[in-house]
Amino acid sequence: MCLAIPGQIIEILQERDNLALVDIVGVRRKIDVGLLSEEPAKPGDWVLIHVGFAMSRISEEDAREQMRLLKMMGEHAAAMEEITGYGLDDSVARGGP
């Protein structure tokens, strides 16, 4: 369930009503940030938006870490394929990173 997409907060509109203006790939919409009350949202923050409400903050650090792991996975897989060609795959697979 759940079409939710990342957007960046441009401006906090009405603190009392929890509204913020968000940019989503060039489209702008007013979003309710009331669910982020534990750590109030500020301009520049990236948030996940679902049905006009911000559900969660997006952590750039976690995203970068994930990209790093994905790149490693890709390189690892490519390296393993090469090794498979040499018939060494079994022993290396057990000891892999």
Binding site: W46, L70, A77
Partner: peptide
């Protein structure tokens, strides 16, 4: 980061697909 296209990177997708086949 824009948090959309990075996670659709074709090279990384091919890499992940290879890893699945390997595992």
């Amino acid at each position: 980061m824009k948090y959309v296209d990075e996670f659709r990177d074709p090279e990384l997708i091919v890499g992940a697909s290879r890893e699945i086949r390997r595992l």
